[in-house]
Design a protein around this nucleic acid. Structure first.
Lengths: 153, 153
DNA sequence: TGTTTTCCTATGTGTTTAGTATGATATCAT
DNA sequence: ATGATATCATACTAAACACATAGGAAAACA
């Protein structure tokens, strides 16, 4: 039940691109330095975001990456799904052709579908802009995160 | 973001033990046959449930396993956690000593904590008895699972 | 004493994770 | 043109994990 570094780093890249957005393309090297992750690894992850249209890329001397929309137009869910793939907790319910032969007689299927839905709804309920707000507040004062009910926003 | 066979099979074992509960100990061999999973693999998973006090075991000729409580007294969450470990989506927030050195400056930490909470709350909101009810209904007629809002109950 | 069960530990195999490395291709500044 | 600097594509690897299989010890009963 873990999110891999691919998804986690992708989210941090998106936040970094949003925070340093001045209209120009941002070098991945700078993102890597700021985030403390090797350039080569980020180079391997970010093409998934480009292919899904989440960021725009530009080659060459003053090239780099930048967001293709406003931060509030991204949900965290689509960023994570772009890099991690389906968030289905069991492969037998995903769109993949791994359908289980015991489907008709499985007592737990509905439970897993419910979990899938809960995870997606949580992630799609938080935007990239929400994370930026938190980050700004954190930088201003050493505020504690999270609301009283643990829900992120 | 996947649940492994350990957790999934553990849940199916618990359902099986509940459905065939007549007070006596149930042979794991019978569970394995009914569920279509090898005995040897289940033998490797079930000790975690015994150690956590979820089932009672008895050795010898008429030995086997049985639930230590009523089905409605189990949440699915405790069954899954007993076999899968912590459901924290990132290791840096779990109780494990993998705390991240960037904690103070991480904009995503609160988001992951919120996801963790959502997952736990969903799983702890469904009992073993709930899954049994669904299973009974499914056996009676070929009913469709899940309520309109996708929430399992 | 033999049978049947749980219990314990070792082994194997394939996949995934988390990175590292090498080089090609595009773009710009000079 | 040419060199510098960026993305892009692909291959490789070490370690961990998933998903079992296998062999035998210990307990309980008939």
């Amino acid at each position: 039940m873990k999110i891999s570094t691919k998804g986690r780093y992708a989210l941090r890249m998106m936040i970094d691109l949003a925070e340093h957005n001045e209209g120009t393309y941002i070098r991945l090297k700078d993102v890597a330095t700021r985030q403390g992750i090797t350039l080569k690894y980020l180079e391997q992850i970010i093409p998934q975001l480009t292919r899904c249209g989440l960021v725009k890329s530009y080659r060459g001397n003053n090239g780099g990456y930048k967001l293709s929309r406003e931060p509030k137009e991204y949900t965290v869910g689509e960023i994570i799904r772009a890099t991690e793939g389906s968030l289905a907790p069991v492969s037998c319910i995903a769109d993949t052709p791994n359908r289980c032969p015991r489907q008709g007689e499985c007592a737990t299927l509905g439970f897993w579908e419910g979990l899938w839905k809960v995870v997606n709804e949580y992630m799609d309920g938080v935007t990239l802009a929400d994370l930026l707000d938190k980050d700004q507040k954190r930088k201003e004062d050493g505020a504690v995160y999270g609301s009283s009910d643990g829900r992120y926003i």
